[in-house]
Design a protein around this nucleic acid. Structure first.
Lengths: 193, 193
DNA sequence: AGTGTAGCTGAACGGTCGGTCGGTAAGCAA
DNA sequence: TTGCTTACCGACCGACCGTTCAGCTACACT
């Protein structure tokens, strides 16, 4: 393998590892994907992977960090908005419309592997803090736990739609369209109890 | 172990295996739970488990079969209803209101382990057929793929709410309440595009 | 008493897992 | 040329995985 014996810079390889790892995790699950799978898909050995990441879990942390900026952008945007009554709807639609396939895959990975996420968060990685902040910005300070949960659900419509599409012939465009419709319905003001 | 040397009948043990397995799968994931974990939680050896189930996958098939009747009941109920315009909403609420913790756990297990479900379905177990039938009964025969996907999403609000509640302090009652609110909003007729 | 069998045990199997370690070739700086 | 760093390899480790199998025991039937 790698018979050209070209030398690559580390950042490139690292990014490729993350890319391939996310694809394989999506296809076969985190536990169903071995680091041998990832490295051999790149024409590397297992050891090369351990040069760039200190553990299998660290790959997931790397994936989460890659997406961190997107959440920060959303938080900044919300903070800069006037607090109109339809803020939640506008924020939700902004989130849906900025969805990329990679983000979708990562969110599904995170949700499908609760024990993994707990392990990562126990060892210091901030996994949920970004979303917690979004919810805090969008709900009243005296909101009930139920209201907060509802807001979380709203921001999960994209991955919910993606999950509902599993095993069907629905296209990615269908997924986004459904998530949009659902976000609008869920945040329609006249339904607020 | 089992020093009382009591003799149990097989059906009881089998049911207990299913119960404990579902609890452990929920807590640690399917791949994160070994046969040894399940059997030792019951004070048995793993060989005893292989007396009742021919493989680890077969345990999941057993869990799915346990819940099969609930879906059949829903299908029968829908088929017996008049085809009013709010049928989807009524069906969705019936589904939400009949939710049990066990069903919720199983649905989450199924959704978190797509590769496993694909494997089971490839080897003959019918995993999705029930839900497919529900959707077929509720949408127009000339409905688009997007409409069908939306209907799937509606019937997934319970587990979506459950997932959104992960890591928060929301109670099971909150989950059901949020799922109810979401089902109503999602099936509100005036939002149909 | 003898036979069958349901329910379970204990020991082992081959295989794969995540992770470690010593080494090494290429590039660069002095 | 020497020496250090970067990027990677190949061999190996102990642990654990799902699974198999011969055999044991308590009970039911005849």
């Amino acid at each position: 393998m790698n018979q050209g014996s070209e030398r690559r810079i580390g950042a490139e390889t690292r990014a490729e590892i993350l890319r391939v790892a996310l694809a394989l995790f999506t296809e076969k699950g985190f536990e169903g994907t071995s680091i041998r799978d990832i490295s051999s898909a790149l024409g590397l050995t297992k050891s090369a992977l351990y040069y760039h990441f200190q553990s299998k879990d660290a790959i997931v942390v790397g994936l989460l960090e890659e997406r961190h900026q997107e959440l920060d952008d959303l938080i900044d945007w919300i903070a800069a908005q006037p607090a109109t009554s339809d803020l939640m709807q506008r924020a939700a639609l902004r989130w849906v419309d900025s969805t990329t396939p990679e983000r979708l895959r990562l969110m599904r990975l995170a949700q499908a592997n609760q024990p993994l996420m707990k392990r990562l968060s126990d060892s210091g990685a901030d996994v949920r803090a970004g979303f917690d902040r979004v919810i805090d910005l969008l709900v009243d300070e005296k909101a009930t736990a139920e209201d907060r949960l509802y807001a979380r659900l709203v921001f999960d419509t994209v991955s919910a739609a993606g999950r509902a599409a599993q095993g069907t012939d629905a296209s990615p465009n269908d997924v986004i369209a459904v998530a949009r419709r659902a976000s609008i319905s869920l945040t329609c003001p006249e339904h607020k109890s």
